[in-house]
Design a protein around this nucleic acid. Structure first.
Lengths: 194, 194
DNA sequence: GCGCAATATTCAACGGTGCTGAATAAAACC
DNA sequence: GGTTTTATTCAGCACCGTTGAATATTGCGC
């Protein structure tokens, strides 16, 4: 079908890497469902069976070609220093700086894959929530951190993962202005009335 | 293949409704991708071509059968009546009541594929955001509604779609208490300082 | 160097997918 | 009662992801 002569090719072209690279672009542009294995193979100038061979499955290729997610630990450390008053703004800045940088243009990926979701959940749950609670300290720290993670997770979800247009379109400064009050309220909520 | 004799059947069985009903169950149980048109047709005792005929496409069937419970006519309407002071609590109640009811226990809807995401996005974007902005009225209404949708979307995401444990575990009253301040802040943010 | 296992590739095919077009039979209309 | 409209089945199309066999190249043991 492609008639590049069967069998192993000459030299050692790193076809696997090329496939992953091409696949990443296509996945970002068309999403998971909208990208067929055959299209990836064609774009990489290769037979579609190769991707099953190298990556096991389309799912495997997807996971592997998008491993560049989502933590970048330094940004969070930086946000979790300084006064509590500016915490909300620093967190929002960290989030937008990090995510706005990862995807090149307009079309943020619709990230629906199971494993990716699991990874993201784990990050929110253990890393983010724990760190924020630790930083806040005092009684109710966990509860306030929970609310804050809810707000931040919401921002990430509605702006990047499943971008609803009005939110995705905001410039970072507007994000801070609009989500700031909610996040501050979450972080510094009064303790439970009794 | 099913040999129920060709052509229109006797009586007027509301096959379309039955298909939608069966489809809803299957979609909720197995997600969009995991539910094939042929499976729906088989479960409804009908030829698979019928669903293209009645609903245009699998996507159409999905949208139609999910509308039956995502919108749940009136839940939102009810929240969008009364004083503005109680709005946040009413919205949070509506969300928890609606979503807590849809899936019984652990197996929350397997929402993680991009068609479902798209449907959900559409709901958030056109329905929810528009209605809230309309209710708020005045300048900045859209911006405040945007922030509110961000918070609500975050709640839905972190509690139902990709449940991170501490948030999913909250009883509804706690959800109101924890997310209330953030949502109120979003809804009633002061206008832009100048 | 040579032989041979491991590896990388193409090709053909399989079962499954959503969907369409033709055939057909009941209902609805006039 | 004849004709149009509607609801259904059936056969099949083009595509999907994946697999197994064939084949050519590399790289290692000796």
């Amino acid at each position: 079908m492609l008639n590049k002569t069967r069998g192993r090719p000459r030299g050692n072209p790193d076809t696997k890497a090329r496939i992953a690279e091409v696949a990443r672009e296509l996945f970002l542009e068309h999403g998971y469902r909208g990208t067929t294995v055959r299209a990836i193979a064609a774009a990489a100038g290769v037979d579609s069976a190769l991707i099953s061979y190298h990556f096991g499955s389309k799912q495997g290729l997807f996971g592997q070609s998008l491993n560049l997610l989502c933590v970048q630990p330094g940004a969070l450390d930086q946000a979790l220093q300084g006064d509590q008053a500016g915490l909300a703004d620093r967190l929002l800045t960290a989030v937008t700086a990090l995510w706005d940088a990862t995807a090149p243009t307009e079309n943020r990926m619709a990230l629906q894959d199971d494993d990716t979701m699991r990874a993201f959940r784990g990050y929110l749950e253990s890393e983010l929530l724990g760190r924020i609670a630790e930083f806040l300290g005092g009684p109710d720290a966990t509860e306030r951190a929970t609310a804050a993670v809810g707000v931040l997770g919401g921002l990430i979800f509605t702006r990047y993962l499943n971008p609803i247009r009005p939110i995705a379109a905001l410039p970072p400064a507007e994000v801070r202005r609009i989500f700031g009050p909610a996040l501050r309220a979450a972080l510094h909520a009064r303790p439970r009335p009794r």
